[in-house]
Amino acid sequence: MSTANKTIHFTLNGRPVTAEVAPHHTLVELLQNQFNLNGARESCAQGLCGCCTVLVDGKSVSGCLYLASFADGTAVDTIEGVADGVALDPVQEAFIEAGAFQCGFCTSGFILMTKQLLDAHPAPDDDQIRHYLAGNLCRCATYPEIIRAVKLAATKRKTVTA
């Protein structure tokens, strides 16, 4: 176990923060252990399920594989930063209205990926949704509901920006 700890500085959900990390610590561990942010969760720990999804400089990464020390100097965004205070993001509202989760363990990842999907394709069709989200798994298999939620979120976003 290497003990060569390193101090890193990064922006977390818009606020500058500092942390002490060991070389083997992952981003999920860092967020949970030092910032008590539990929305990115480890499940497969192999980059295969998306439960640990976090945005680093606006791009989604698997927080279970992404080493914490690499976050130095970046902007990290997590599910906890998606709502504006108690006001939910349209994507979050859409997931609730479409009933797009059961146990919710996968939900943080799907919501962050949906935001990224809608940034790239504001009005996605079924195929685009299925392809874009293919890297995220839901054992409760709420996939049909997630497709409905993504489409609903797309409409909601349109009305917000219009």
Partner: peptide
């Protein structure tokens, strides 16, 4: 519990 599930909390 829907809100707590979509906010990761």
């Amino acid at each position: 519990e829907a809100t707590s599930k979509v906010t990761g909390r």
